[in-house]
Nucleic acid binder design. Structure first.
Length: 572
RNA sequence: CGGGGCAUAGCGCAGUUUGGUAGCGCAUCUGGUUUGGGACCAGAGGGUCGUAGGUUCGAAUCCUGCUGCCCCGACCA
């Protein structure tokens, strides 16, 4: 491709409304432009990268035995009513009406459509297992689109759906998809982790997310430093502490703490170790219990995990914190002076709280705390559950190593759906006994456009994008200097361009009438992995100047066998 | 949906407090000089100041409604 025939839409200044680095660089490099909130157009440079990702995904899906289909992005309401999601899905489902008054939606996902197809086309267990995928535009009417293409309303997704006669077959294909995803993200050149995702109804290993590690990610991922274990912090188990509860060594003491409403203040004013304090959080109890409220206790330096708390029996879902009025009415003290002693309501303590001794807590009297509290001596040990978020340094739930916590961007998700849709939509095949059986289903998604942004989030420098090898829109940029005036530079550059192109290299020839600095800056911003400068000066000395995008130094290389030299640089 | 902010040339912004008919940098176009890291000189084009109404002799500026966008939170996964 010649620069003179390609839209180079680079921006010198960073648009003010772009917050994350990938959004800024995609705008600056001329990959995308915003059309409306959460809606983006892909310019030629950006689309080239999208196509690279698609090609890798398509190749690995085909190798894994999936068949490509293409379903409509506009879907009839009837299918969604059949599955029950027309009501369930909420305002994120963009609904529309056609000229005849019939209702439709923009597809945020395609379980309904594929299930409808499969139930009409498949009759026998002999046709299973089968796996269909598509690469297609999705629409989700996000409340707050942000971070450019990372959380947009319209986006390109690869989604696959597999169908099975039984759970074993589903698990087999799930593993095949897991392996395919590993190959895909390896080929994309991303630093990623498969992460165990919460999957209440099916449990265990029924769902994995694939996260690209980047500080701008919206999810916290906990993973072991010594094994492959990785899980969303929300769903990572905090293990029982291994140490035993120490025997009490101090006596119970009631003290005045007029200015200590928070753990931090208490620790500061009384010189207490934060691991010897506890936080008492009062939430509403589930309906039908004996008590209006219920107390949840975690260690002072720990955070309550709201999902875990909500899943405890007796706790109202969704989790609702008690108001100040409720506290005063039921306890007689406000938040900031609460604790387990003389607390007249059910109490659940976190596992790590159960092994504490000689600790401090509010006295349930305003401006007073107890020091030296011990379970069983001063108050009976309450019910014990896993209530907290795991922290960095905690032992890994897998039993090996300690947990590290990093931010992740979810770029893939695989899921064992089971029979949810096949039962709702009555998708059956005949089994070997001639009996109709609902099919088991799996679904497997990859955010194509999000993967492009994620790749930039982890590969850039001050000068712009640094594309992973397999994603770069072009493999090499030839930058001739004084191309429009110097006959020898022009003919040399053109000849090399033809030769490399003939060798199957995707080469970008910057034949613009621009000053060298402009060309260098643009090629770096756009992330060209290799750069060859052709100049009069170099030709005189029989050299070209080569620089890899991440090389610190440029180097002069002989003009002799330059094509072979570059091909080997590019291919390695 | 709650809170905050913004809207002036393609992009980034000033001008709004104190009303007088719009400006700067970059970009674009023309001519010239330059030519190894985002050049220089001279000239030119480009704006219903988001939109609708109001106040006023006069509104980018003051008032009101509306729309769009951004940030924080909630929601969603």
């Amino acid at each position: 491709m010649r620069a003179s025939k390609f839209l180079i839409a680079t921006l010198k200044e960073t648009p003010t409304d772009a917050e994350v680095i990938s959004h800024q660089l995609m705008l600056r490099a001329g990959m995308i432009r915003r059309s409306a909130s959460g809606l983006y157009s892909w310019l030629p440079l950006g689309l080239k990268v999208v196509r690279k990702v698609e090609a890798i995904v398509r190749d690995e899906m085909n190798r894994a035995g999936a068949q490509e289909v293409l379903m409509p992005s506009v879907q009839p309401a009837e299918l969604w009513q059949e599955s029950g999601r027309w009501e369930e899905y909420g305002p994120e489902l963009m609904r529309l009406t056609d000229r005849h008054g019939r209702e439709f939606c923009l597809g945020p996902t395609h379980e309904e459509v594929i299930t409808d197809i499969v139930k009409k086309e498949l009759r026998s267990y002999k046709q299973l297992p089968i796996n269909f995928y598509q690469i297609q535009t999705k629409f989700r009417d996000e409340i707050r689109p942000r971070f450019g293409v990372m959380r947009s309303r319209e986006f390109i997704m690869k989604d696959a759906y597999s169908f099975h006669i039984n759970e074993e077959s589903l698990k087999d294909t799930y593993q095949v998809m897991f392996d395919a995803y590993v190959k895909i993200f390896d080929r994309l050149g991303l630093n990623y982790r498969p992460v165990i995702a919460d999957n209440g109804s099916i449990g265990g290993s029924g769902s994995h997310e694939f996260h690209v590690l980047a500080s701008s990610g919206e999810d916290n991922i906990a993973f072991s430093d010594q094994s492959d274990y990785a899980a969303n912090v929300e769903s990572a188990e905090a293990l029982h502490p291994t140490q035993q509860r120490a025997t009490p060594s101090s006596s119970l003491e009631l003290i005045d703490t007029p200015n200590a409403k928070t753990i931090a203040a208490l620790v500061e004013q009384f010189g207490l170790p934060i691991e010897k304090t506890i936080k008492t959080l009062i939430v509403e109890a589930a309906e039908g219990g004996d008590s209006e409220l219920i107390a949840l206790i975690v260690r002072g330096d720990h955070e309550l995990n709201e999902i875990k708390a909500e899943n405890c029996s007796g706790v109202k879902s969704p989790l609702t914190f008690a108001s100040e009025e409720q506290l005063v009415k039921n306890i007689g003290a406000g938040a900031g002076s609460l604790g387990p002693i003389d607390l007249k309501m059910p109490i659940i303590i976190d596992r790590s709280v159960a092994v504490m001794s000689d600790f401090s807590a509010g006295a349930n009297i305003d401006d007073k705390h107890y020091l030296g509290i011990n379970w069983d001596r001063d108050v009976a040990t309450p019910r014990i559950e896993d209530l907290r978020n795991v922290q960095e340094g905690d032992p890994s739930p897998c039993g090996k190593g300690k947990l590290l916590i990093k931010r992740g961007i979810e770029v893939g998700h695989i899921f064992q759906l089971g029979k949810k849709y096949s039962e709702a939509m009555n998708a059956v095949v005949l089994d070997p006994n001639g009996k109709a059986q609902h099919m088991h289903m799996g679904c497997y998604g990859i955010g194509i456009t999000r993967a492009v942004a994620a790749a930039i989030e982890q590969n850039y420098d001050d000068n712009g994008i640094i594309w992973p090898k397999n994603l770069a829109p072009f493999e090499i940029a030839i930058v001739p200097l004084n191309y429009e005036k110097s006959e020898i530079v022009k003919s040399t550059a053109d000849a090399l361009y033809d030769e490399l192109s003939a060798a199957g290299i995707e080469v970008f020839l910057d034949d613009r009438k621009e000053r060298p600095g402009v060309k260098f800056a643009d090629m770096e911003l756009m992330g060209m992995p290799h750069r060859l400068v052709i100049s009069d000066r170099g030709i005189k000395a029989d050299t070209f100047e080569y620089k890899g995008r991440t090389d610190s130094e440029k180097q002069d290389v002989s003009t002799e066998n330059i094509c072979e030299y570059l091909v080997s640089k590019i291919r390695n």
